[in-house]
Every structure is written in C-alpha cells, then in structure tokens.
C-alpha cells in the first residue's frame, strides 16, 4: 500500500478492491427431467465413475432442455442434491421468472437463456499473448495476472480429472484414462499416459512437458494430437508439445 496516496481515496480509484472482468470455466448441468429421484440416481452413478470431477466443482443449473414444466422442479432439493454430491451450484440458466426469484432467495445467480458468452469466447481463438486472460473483458488497464500454479505430488489415476486455471505441475504419473486440464502450461515429471489439455482458454503459447510421452491425447488451445500421431512421435521419450501456426509439434527435450 502506498503511503503517499491521497487521503480521500476517490470512489473512482478505490484501494480496497479492483473490479475485473473474468472468464472462468463453469460446468453446465443441463437438466433433462424434473424428477429429482431419477437425476439423483444417475448423478450418483456418475460420481462413483469420476469422483475427482465432483470435488467442489461450481456448476450452473440449466433448465432450457426440460420438456416438462420447469416450475415442477424443486430448486431447494436440487441445490441440496448438488451439494451432497460435492458440486457447488452457483447459478441457474434459462429458468422462469418465479424460478429466478427463488434462485436469488437461495443466493444463486440467474443467467439468461441462450448461448453462454464464455463459450463463444473460447471458440474464437484469442491472440496468443500471456495477458489474454485479462485483456478482452477487463475494464481497467491490463496488468498481467499470474495464473495460479498448482503442484500435485501424487499420481493422477484413471477416472480422475484435474483442472487448474493456471499452470499445472505433476510430480508423478498421469494414468491412462485420467485427464488433466490447465489454462496455462502442464508439466508432468513422470509418464503422461492419459489426456493433457493445456491452454484451455485458447492460449496457443501454452506447452505440455512430460518425462515420458505415452499420452492418449495432447491438446493446446484446442489443437490436438491423438493415438497414431502420438505413438509415432517420440513415444516414451521426454518431450515438450507446443503450437506453431495452429499445428501441434512434439519435440524431444534434451
């Protein structure tokens, strides 16, 4: 904190906070039924399948694909069900105006019907700059945000999914059937046998490094390689993957 700042901090430049636009990935739980017992059973089965995905994952509850009367849905029970399963409901999408009022009462936001803004932004590839996360929607002058770095020192097992809104460093192996996702770079100091997706929000300068390339899929900013393309390129060698002109290159690390 600068001690020289004017005592009457103007409302235009508050020191206690900064408002920034941000794009955060969010899972949409698109409901197909208002029958919560059916939903509960199928969601539970999903939890046993990929438990890691359900750990404190924020979700938007989508009502647009409901064929039944959406007002038949018990929003309180739906919220409780999500919470029991480790999801964090944050908003509803495409509800009736009564539901929106109910959502507000429950501390949930209400998003309008239609395509989410975030989804379109991810599809149009942003310029490959480090600051892209803060550039598009940021009202104030862009100061590059250092994305969080997460270090994990245990193996990522089949069925697990890890997402980090920054760089991801794994000090062990990533199993076949596991998926690791990062907005930034991915480092695997072990064998990469599963799926690795870096630059998830479109950063083409992101890279994937691994000690032994045995991956099922490697993707950077949506450009990906699978199967034969990976097997024929430095298989089981220490490699890095990076993007040149929209093409993914696998090169040995040496």
């Amino acid at each position: 904190m600068r001690s020289t700042s004017a005592p009457n901090t103007s409302a235009a430049r508050p020191e206690s906070f900064q408002l920034k636009g941000g794009l955060f990935p969010m899972t949409l739980l698109e409901l197909k039924t208002v029958d919560l017992s059916v939903l509960a059973a199928e969601l539970r089965a999903r939890v046993t399948e990929s438990p890691a995905f359900f750990q404190h994952t924020p979700v938007v509850l989508g009502f647009e694909q409901l064929k039944e009367d959406p007002d038949a849905l018990n929003l309180i029970q739906l919220r409780d069900l999500c919470q029991q399963l480790g999801l964090i409901p944050t908003a509803i999408k495409g509800g009736s105006s009564e539901q929106e009022q109910q959502a507000y009462a429950l501390g949930l936001a209400a998003l309008p019907k239609g395509k989410a803004k975030g989804a379109t932004t991810v599809e149009t590839a942003p310029p490959p700059t480090r600051e892209r996360r803060t550039s598009a929607t940021q009202p104030e002058a862009a100061t590059p945000t250092t994305g969080t770095t997460q270090v994990i020192d245990t193996p990522i097992r089949s069925g697990q999914q890890i997402y980090v809104p920054g760089d991801l460093i794994i000090l062990s192996s990533v199993s076949a059937g596991a998926e690791i996702l990062a907005d930034g770079n991915i480092h695997v100091y072990g064998a990469l046998r599963g799926r690795a997706l870096a630059g998830l929000q479109g950063d083409e300068t992101a890279r994937v490094f691994c000690q032994s390339q045995e991956a099922e899929l490697i993707a950077i900013a949506g450009h990906y390689l699978v199967d034969e393309d990976l097997r024929s390129q430095h298989w089981k060698a220490a490699t890095q993957a990076y993007c040149v002109g929209g093409k993914l290159i696998i090169a040995p690390l040496s």
Partner: peptide, 14 residues
C-alpha cells in the same frame, strides 16, 4: 491394471 488404477484414485479422493 486400469481397474486397479481407478480404485487407487477413488481411495485417495473419496
């Protein structure tokens, strides 16, 4: 081995 890997994942997460 794949099944065992999944079980190990569940053990350490659930």
């Amino acid at each position: 081995v794949r099944d065992s890997d999944r079980i190990l994942g569940i053990l350490q997460s659930k």
